[in-house]
């Protein structure tokens, strides 16, 4: 029983980070059909924002030293700002472009962010020590899990609930859902496109920043490429969840995390290095089973 519970917690701990990432990707995709490859770089950017720009090896933590009550809002704000800025500077000018063009632009933007960070901080990973007492383990029904992982799981669910409430109960949320369903129609019915899109970008940036905070606390390291693997998994989760379906993205993020933990646990040692090959084969099978995604909204049916 304890073993099962432990696996469940481990799976949730990995999965909830993916879920947060998938949510950030799915939000933007919902309103403007953009697969935002720069999302992973927002994550890294938020983490590096805690440090003083310097190519020295020893990192000088600046705003990362602030008390949590200040640090968290500032980092979240930075995430939102860089996300909204990229909308205003880049994506706004591509409203009528095809999805491939937007995707490549987002990739180019991520590339720029990455190399700007590289220039200001050099490539060596930097140490960040945030809230080290969060790393202490707690025991739940015999399963031990670091407090931070428990918090990550809780935070994910809180964010999810808050977002659901926001989408279902507020005017912005309503507009956003309408825009996700049918953007042109929503505009005709008086939804202000720019405002909806900006809100989506802001929320997506907040999510990226919160992943950054969680990762920095968990790993203690700032690395320029740290957001990339999460972004890729999140991207996959968004698609197999059903593009445009936020709960679908979240559930699939959790599922992929869980699958990866289960494979790690049950594969024999010799096959363990091939874990990701099994994982992605499963993704292909999943797509064949439900090409429109497991939780595809009816409106998302694609032609060709």
């Amino acid at each position: 029983m304890t073993a099962v519970l432990q696996i469940l917690f481990d799976a949730l701990a990995v999965g909830s980070i993916y879920a947060l990432g998938a949510l950030g990707i799915a939000l933007i995709f919902g309103v403007m059909r953009l697969v935002n490859f720069a999302h992973g770089d927002y994550i890294a950017f938020c983490v590096f924002a805690m440090l003083v720009p310097s190519t020295d090896v020893v990192a000088i933590v600046l705003i990362g030293k602030l008390p949590a009550i200040l640090l968290i809002p500032i980092i979240l704000l930075i995430g939102a700002v860089i996300s909204v800025l990229s909308e205003m500077l880049v994506f706004r000018h591509l409203r009528n472009a095809n999805p491939a063009t937007m995707m490549i632009c987002s990739f180019a933007l991520g590339f720029v962010i990455q190399h700007v960070l590289l220039m200001f901080y050099s490539s060596r990973p930097k140490a960040i020590n945030l809230w080290s007492n969060l790393s202490l383990p707690v025991e739940i029904f015999g399963a031990r899990i670091p407090l931070l992982q428990l918090l990550t799981i809780i935070i994910t669910f809180v964010i999810l609930v808050a977002l659901m409430w926001f989408l279902k109960r507020t005017r912005y949320g309503l507009e956003m859902r309408a825009a996700a369903e049918d953007f042109t129609m929503a505009r005709m019915l008086g939804v202000r496109a720019n405002r909806v899109i900006m809100t989506a970008f802001a929320v997506s940036g907040l999510l990226a920043a919160s992943i950054g905070l969680i990762l920095a606390t968990q790993t203690g390291v700032a690395d320029i490429r740290m957001g990339m693997p999460i972004m890729l998994v999140a991207f996959v989760a968004t698609v197999i969840g059903g593009l445009g379906s936020l709960p679908g993205a979240v559930i699939c993020g959790l599922l992929i995390g869980a699958a990866s933990v289960l494979l790690q646990v049950f594969l024999p040692l010799d096959a363990r290095p091939f874990r990701d090959a099994f994982l992605y084969s499963a993704v292909i099978l999943c797509l064949l089973w439900r090409p429109d995604g497991i939780f595809a909204p009816r409106s998302a049916k694609q032609r060709v």
Partner: peptide
């Protein structure tokens, strides 16, 4: 057999494999 973005993701999964 897949189309659109599902096919794109499948090709990405293929690359990862």
């Amino acid at each position: 057999r897949l189309a659109g973005i599902a096919a794109s993701i499948a090709t990405f999964a293929f690359l990862a494999v």
